[in-house]
Amino acid sequence: MDDLTPGEAGPQIGGLGVAEVARRLGVAPSTLRVWDRQYGVGPTGGGPGRHHRYTQADVARLETMQQMISAGAPPAEAAEAVLHTPHGQDQGPQSHSAADSHKELEISAAEHAESQVTRIRNLADAAMALDELVMTGILESALRHEGVTATWEQVIVPLLVDLGRKHAATGEYVEVEHLLSAVVSRCLLAVTSPQTQFPAGRIRSPVVLACAPEEEHALPVLVLAAALAEIGAARLMLGARVPASALAAAVARTGAHTVFVWSQTSETGDPSWLTDLRTTHPALQVVVGGPGWDRDRLPPEVPFTSSVSAALGALLAAGTTDR
């Protein structure tokens, strides 16, 4: 999935392919595909067949977007900024206005990073006070302005990690973590509207989301469901403790081509049953995530993802009609 695009040639035919650009930026090709589909920051050059090529201006735009994200800007904001900033293919020294625009982008990223720190601190204070109303307001605002993936990775995960450290050191704050998880779940469900039909053109069939058998930590699966809903992708969330037979039945009944399975704990991370699932459904693309998996025993054709953004990219790349 992340190898060279079939038929990909060198820059002499008018640009670079996705694999070459990904190597230059140090990201997965699936990340570039997500940035293209979700934010419109993609290749603009011509290429053989339906394969567009990345021009020098496209690469410059991606480099700026990557720098902004690294500085703390949400991907949607970074994409909007670079799409409205000139990145000429044969530009000389930056004009005054272009240089000023770039400086403004850096300032905006710094301000955003500072606001995220404030948001995390306020959410932590509300959580420690068990103030459900304030927690809900902060999370609803973050989801509205930052989106699902950025809110999860930049706000919620840092707080959960901090609570985990506090619990490991003191044995306390279990009630805080439970309340935070409950509020996060409710806020995510509020932005994950039921589907009346699966949208055409983006995902051929629903992405089936499930926890491994006996795995009870379903929050990351809910995050992925909300992230897919945010971009209009079809999904079917089965939730916690999904038996292997039930997952196979759901795949058969929905005609799903893509499955994501989460394992939080080592007790649920035995991947042996995944081979049987793919044997029964040879066209099925299985993607897994979570710290519980025994990664040394994962089938070679099953990619492991370490974050929601990486999982989202892998699922979109696996399930698109034009793969």
Score class of each variant (00 low, 15 high):
residue 9 A to T: 14
residue 245 S to C: 05
residue 184 V to F: 10
residue 25 L to S: 07
residue 227 A to P: 00
residue 172 E to T: 04
residue 293 W to C: 02
residue 239 G to H: 05
residue 317 A to M: 10
residue 168 A to V: 04
residue 271 P to L: 03
residue 297 R to T: 04
residue 195 Q to C: 07
residue 50 R to E: 15
residue 65 M to Y: 13
residue 83 L to A: 06
residue 85 T to D: 03
residue 120 I to R: 15
residue 51 H to T: 10
residue 282 P to I: 01
residue 272 S to V: 01
residue 51 H to Q: 15
residue 66 Q to D: 14
residue 320 T to C: 11
residue 148 V to S: 02
residue 291 P to E: 00
residue 122 N to P: 01
residue 303 P to A: 13
residue 255 G to Q: 12
residue 87 H to K: 07
residue 151 T to C: 14
residue 219 L to P: 08
residue 103 K to I: 11
residue 32 L to S: 12
residue 10 G to Y: 13
residue 82 V to Q: 09
residue 166 K to F: 11
residue 103 K to D: 12
residue 61 R to C: 00
residue 231 I to D: 03
residue 218 A to Y: 07
residue 159 L to M: 11
residue 284 L to A: 10
residue 196 T to M: 13
residue 249 A to L: 05
residue 40 G to Q: 11
residue 56 Q to S: 04
residue 49 G to R: 00
residue 194 P to A: 00
residue 190 A to F: 08
residue 141 S to F: 09
residue 154 Q to S: 11
residue 205 S to H: 13
residue 274 L to W: 02
residue 14 G to D: 07
residue 112 H to Q: 10
residue 155 V to S: 04
residue 72 G to R: 00
residue 248 A to G: 07
residue 4 L to Q: 09
residue 301 E to Y: 14
residue 194 P to L: 01
residue 222 L to R: 13
residue 148 V to E: 00
residue 116 Q to C: 02
residue 272 S to D: 01
residue 74 P to D: 07
residue 147 G to F: 14
residue 70 S to C: 02
residue 285 Q to C: 11
residue 88 G to Q: 08
residue 20 E to H: 07
residue 276 D to R: 02
residue 270 D to F: 03
residue 286 V to H: 01
residue 303 P to S: 14
residue 164 G to I: 05
residue 124 A to G: 15
residue 43 P to T: 10
residue 105 L to W: 10
residue 288 V to Q: 13
residue 163 L to V: 03
residue 124 A to F: 15
residue 237 M to E: 09
residue 114 E to D: 15
residue 28 A to H: 15
residue 97 S to V: 12
residue 218 A to M: 04
residue 66 Q to I: 06
residue 9 A to Y: 13
residue 25 L to I: 11
residue 174 V to D: 09
residue 60 A to F: 11
residue 183 V to N: 00
residue 3 D to N: 02
residue 186 R to I: 08
residue 156 I to G: 09
residue 232 G to Q: 09
residue 303 P to E: 10
residue 133 L to P: 02
residue 227 A to Y: 03
residue 136 T to S: 14
residue 173 Y to N: 04
residue 300 P to V: 08
residue 12 Q to N: 03
residue 229 A to D: 14
residue 137 G to I: 05
residue 37 R to E: 08
residue 236 L to P: 02
residue 133 L to E: 10
residue 215 E to T: 09
residue 296 D to P: 02
residue 144 R to D: 11
residue 58 D to I: 04
residue 20 E to F: 05
residue 188 L to M: 05
residue 86 P to V: 05
residue 252 A to N: 07
residue 52 H to D: 07
residue 45 G to M: 06
residue 185 S to L: 05
residue 237 M to A: 12
residue 80 E to A: 15
residue 86 P to C: 02
residue 157 V to L: 12
residue 22 A to H: 13
residue 186 R to Q: 12
residue 268 T to G: 06
residue 269 G to W: 06
residue 29 P to E: 04
residue 185 S to Y: 06
residue 271 P to K: 04
residue 321 T to F: 03
residue 312 L to Y: 11
residue 214 E to G: 00
residue 156 I to L: 15
residue 50 R to I: 14
residue 157 V to E: 14
